[in-house]
Each structure stands twice: as C-alpha cells, then as structure tokens.
Design a protein around this nucleic acid. Structure first.
Length: 452
RNA sequence: GUGGCUAUAGUUCAAUGGUAGAACACUGGUUUGUGGCACCAGACACGAGGGUCCGAUUCCCUCUAGCCACCCCA
C-alpha cells in the first residue's frame, strides 16, 4: 500500500513545527552550547589563569559587564551590515518592552562602561581585562559555538603606538607561554579620512571594466556596502583580481603612516614575528589604524581560524557618546585556544600533592573525625574524606582515587586506645600513632618526602 | 543560510533483515577493619518519526543532533 505512505510523508513536514510542543522526557543542551565538565575544566583553569597572571603584570585590571545589553548598542557600533548583528544576534524584546541582546562581543560594553563610569577622570590609560561568555547564533563548527568565551584586553586613553605594540606583545607572550606557535598578521586601515580616500580608489579599481564580472556575487555586494571587505574574500577569482589592487599602506595619511611605522618598529625591537598583511581588514565597523590577528602556525594551512584578533578604535568612544578617546584592544577565543593546547599535548599542572585521606569506622569515629578533618584543613593540610561511606574498603578506594599519600584511619579500637592508624598508601605499611600526635607525625613524614 | 560525512552502553568502537557484543568506566562479590593487581557477577545502548517488509538497529525518506567545509567570525 504505497499510497498512505505518501500522505504520511506530507504530514511529516507539517509535524516539524509541532516538534517543540512534543512532550520530552529529558532535556539536552541547546544547539551549539557546551557543558564544560571536570577534566575539560582543567584546561579552562590553565588558560584563564595564564591570561589573568599575564594581564596583571602588564597593569591590566579585571572588570565584568552584564550579559544583557541594549540591542541597538551593537547595531550602531559593531555594524548594521555585519553578520554578527544582522544574522547572529540573540535579540529579543523583554517584559518591559525593551529590545535587548545577549552580548555578541565585548568591546561595546567596555566602551559603554568607560563612558558611563566617567573613567576619563581616572588616570589614563585605563587597562582592562575582561573575560566571559558571548553569544552568536551561528551554525556550530570546529572552534565555533553559540555560546563561547573570550578574553578581552582593552586600553583606553592612549594614542601612542607603544600601546598597540604592547597589546600585541601581550597576546604573543600569552601564546608563547602556552607553547602555542603563532604568527601575528598585521595591517593598518587608517583613520576616517585616509580610509575614505583609499576606499574610493579601491572602488574605482574594481569598477574598471571586466573586473566586476570576475568577482563572486558576495563581492559585488561588498563593493557597494563595505568595499574594504573585498580584500578579505577567499574566492579564487577574487583573490586573483585583488593582486593588482591598490594597497592601503600607500594611501595612509602622514599621521597614520607614522603611527603604523612605529608600531612595526616596536614589534621588530621586541622580536615578535609578524606578517604585514595588506589584505587584512576586520569585520567590525569601528576599527581604525592598527588591526591584527593571531594565527596559529600549523602545518595545515587549510584551517586559518584566528585564535585572537583586535586593533585600534580611536573613534568609538566619541561615537558612543563619550569624549574623544583613543583606544585599542584585542580578544582571544578561549575555546579555540584550549583546542590548540589539547592538540599540542601541553601538560597540565599536576593533580593535588600530599593528599591526606581521613577514613572512619562506626558512628562514634565518624563524629570524632569530622573535627579532625577541620583541624587539619585549617592547619594547611591537603585533606580529603568520604564520610558518607561506611565501609573502610570503599573509603580506601576513594583515597586511592584521589591519589592520597597517607590515610588516617580511626575505628572503635583506636578510639579506646587514643590512637589512630596511619597508612602509607604507596607501600601499604601502616602504623599505630598517638591520636594527639597526628599533626607532628604528618609534618615529619611530609618533610621527609620533600627531602627525597 | 549552503554543502559533505556521521548517529549503537557513561566513553571508544564492533556485528547483524529475525533474541546487539567488546574494551575501559561503573556497582557488587572473592576479603562483614584495608585501596591499587587479579578473578567472578551485575546494571546500562540501537537519536526521533514515518515507509518498505511476515519481521528493520540494519534498506529508504523526513526531522533532529554531532563533526567538517563554505559564509562569517574569536
């Protein structure tokens, strides 16, 4: 009976809309969202603490901003034509009728905070370290999630090229210390004035006869909307046309050229390997002058997803209603960095050392040992326990799992004698010790360990 | 948004048009006051819906999800 089958097939498509209404017995993660479980979290700790330590030594101070912000803040800064805003933003109207968005990037929030808290009255420059989740409704892929995290470093109120170079140095050191080989791609896209001039030249170039036909459809649109992005296209035909295109470095005004030259000089001075990439333009509207990306130096050239990116945005503070304030910054993609760390098999810190496990038998012992645990913990010992378990076997299993060096065991017999057992977990040898001398005994044994 | 590959236990993977296996992990036991090793036992899976068929985890379709590439981006 093939006929009923067809009818049902048609029904199937209609059911598609009804799926969410279906009763679900269990729940699963939303698309593109990740749970970070215990083992994975060790990598997060490594990456975050590296960023925090490094940033602190360069004088960056940490701050946080809300996850929810006014949606139009991004529309007006990130770019009304950018994919981030037009296609990927989690935006909705809240109960108060306000159009809000889950932040798709950090910089606008940080600029907003700078202005809102009158940070121009603080000693300049303001150096910020920010890290947290961002949201973009993308199609999930390698190194891309709908909720992802960035580490952001921003510097406000400093026009000097030293600032640019220092940020790049910081980013470079971050990767170096994580043992990830990277290369800095760098370019200058000038200021409002010289970029405009270059932009016109570029449009003129691409409008020369025959060229438009060779470009991909996207690039034809870009020509009207955002001509700089033509340089970014990876389509073979477009790359070919591009080779003869005018280069922005030749059109920078004196100030911009001077600024960029200095940035490069500092990088030379610091021995940071960089590639002057005249095709590098960033996707966000607010960048001026220096722009850069951090690329992994892999054998495979195919995947050239940036691990981090940033640049200068000298007009943004004023544009968002603040005083004219030069600024620059960059962002690192935490998930991408972590996947590189994993790829390189970079060793994580060792698990806890010198763990003392406390085991008990019977209610009376359990009660007594509660106090001992607290006492030892306060004295700085690395203590562990499994007081919910009754059998000694189960407790020693746990001791083994956490890699305990010694286990202290208290049972009825020991309570009566005023003693406790100390078991060396490696050798299995155990001795009876005076309950009152536990601390001394532990100190003695741990000292001996360290001497070895 | 477009395209390719995939979907079996907690994990990594098998097999099969007719009752789905292993390894590791987990729980219990050998040892009712002693972990690691060993041995024994146990629990746990065919992503969802539909079709073909006597019978589908297997073949077909749709959906969903994952991975990957494009777009874009960190």
């Amino acid at each position: 009976m093939p006929r009923p089958a067809k009818i049902k097939k048609n029904n199937n498509k209609k059911e598609k809309e009804a799926v969410p209404a279906k009763k679900r017995k269990s729940f699963s993660r939303l698309r593109g969202m990740k749970d970070v479980l215990f083992d994975e979290y060790r990598y997060w700790d490594l990456v975050k603490s590296k960023a925090i330590d490094l940033a602190r030594t360069y004088g960056f101070k940490r701050l946080d901003t809300p996850i929810l912000e006014p949606a139009d803040m991004y529309e007006r800064t990130t770019g009304e034509t950018s994919d981030i805003v037009t296609k990927e933003m989690y935006a909705f109207v809240d109960k108060g009728g306000e159009k809000v968005a889950l932040r798709p990037e950090a910089t606008p929030s940080l600029v907003r905070a700078y202005i809102e808290h009158g940070m121009f009255n603080f000693p300049q420059p303001i150096k910020m370290l920010w890290l947290g989740p961002l949201f973009r409704h993308d199609k999930p892929q390698a190194g891309r999630y709908r909720q992802f995290s960035q580490i952001d470093l921003e510097m406000f109120g400093e026009e000097s090229p030293v600032a640019d170079a220092q940020l790049i140095l910081l980013a470079y050191n971050f990767f170096k210390e994580l043992q990830i080989d990277v290369q800095v791609q760098i370019n200058s896209i000038g200021c409002k004035e010289c970029r405009k001039e270059y932009s016109n030249k570029l449009i003129a170039f691409y409008k020369e006869r025959g060229k438009r036909a060779k470009l991909c459809p996207d690039c034809n649109k870009r020509l009207a909307k955002n001509p700089l992005r033509l340089l970014d296209c990876k389509e073979e035909k477009c790359v070919e046309v591009r080779t003869d295109a005018p280069q922005i470095v030749d059109y920078l005004c004196d100030d911009c050229k001077n600024h960029f030259t200095k940035v490069l000089e500092y990088l030379d001075e610091l021995d940071i390997p960089y590639n002057l990439n005249t095709y590098l333009v960033r996707g966000l509207d607010y960048y001026t002058r220096t722009v850069f990306e951090i690329w992994p130096m892999d054998g495979e050239e195919s995947r050239q997803t940036a691990l981090g990116a940033g640049g200068r945005y000298d007009d943004l503070v004023e544009f968002m209603g603040g005083r004219p304030t030069p600024a620059c910054g960059f962002a690192l993609g935490v998930e991408r960095v972590i996947s590189k760390v994993k790829e390189k098999n970079i060793p994580l810190k060792q698990e806890d050392e010198n763990v003392i496990f406390i085991a008990q038998l019977g209610d009376q012992a359990r009660r007594k040992v509660f106090g001992l645990f607290e006492e030892l913990r306060r004295s700085g010992f690395n203590v562990r326990q499994a007081f919910t378990k009754d059998s000694l076997k189960a407790q020693l299993e746990e001791a083994n799992r956490v890699g305990a060096k010694f286990s202290l065991i208290l049972g009825q017999k020991e309570i009566l004698d005023g003693t406790m057992l100390i078991r060396d977990m490696e050798s299995g040898i155990q001795e009876v010790i005076d309950y009152k001398k536990i601390r001394q005994e532990l100190e003695k044994r741990l000292n001996n360990e360290n001497k070895k």
